[in-house]
Amino acid sequence: MISTMNVEPPLRPPAHRVSPRAVRWWQLRALPWLVVLGAPQLVMLLTTGAPVWPWTLAATVVGVLAYLLVVPRILFRIHRWEITDEAVYTLSGWLVREWRIAPISRVQTVDTQHGPLQQLLKLATVTVTTASSRGAVKIAGLDAGDAAELARTLTETTQATPGDAT
C-alpha cells in the first residue's frame, strides 16, 4: 500500500526553470572527478601492470560518463525557482530534494556570483540571505541577464521592508 509508493509533499514545483545551459555547467563541474578517480588508477596500471586496473579504469570512465549524461539532465528537470510579491520559493537537490521558502519581508541581502565556468557559459548564481545562518536561498545556473534582473527586482522589493526578526 502506501509504504511502497513514493509520496512527495503536496507542493507544486516553482514556476521557472533555470537556464538550459546549466546542464553543460553541471557536466563540466563533474568532469574533474574523472581525473581525481582515474589518475591514481592509471598510475597503478602503469607502475604495477596488474590485470585488475584496466577493468576498474574502464568502470570509472563508464561510471563518470553515465553520471554526466544522466544526472545533470535530472538536475535541470528538478531545479526550479519562483519569486512572488511575498516569497522566494526554490526547489533543488537530486538525492535530497529541498523546497525552500523565504518571505520577501525577511530578506537581508541579495548577491549574484559568477564563477569562472559560469562566466564561460554566461550563467550566474543568485543567493538570497536572511538573518539566519542556515536561511540562504540559492538559485544556481540562472542565465546571467535573468540573474541581474532578478537581483535588481529583489533588492527593490526588499529595501522598503523593515524588521528582520533577529
Binding site: L95, R97, E98, T130, R134, A165
Partner: peptide, 29 residues
C-alpha cells in the same frame, strides 16, 4: 525567517519529510 521542506530518496519511499524552521537565533534552524 523561512521554511525548508527536505526529502531524501529514502524519505520519499517512506512518505515522510523533514521540516525546518529557519531562524536567526541559536543554531539557525
Amino acid at each position: 525567517l523561512g521554511m525548508t521542506v527536505r526529502q531524501s530518496v529514502f524519505q520519499r519511499r517512506a512518505g515522510v519529510v523533514t521540516v525546518e524552521a529557519v531562524t536567526a537565533a541559536g543554531q539557525g534552524g
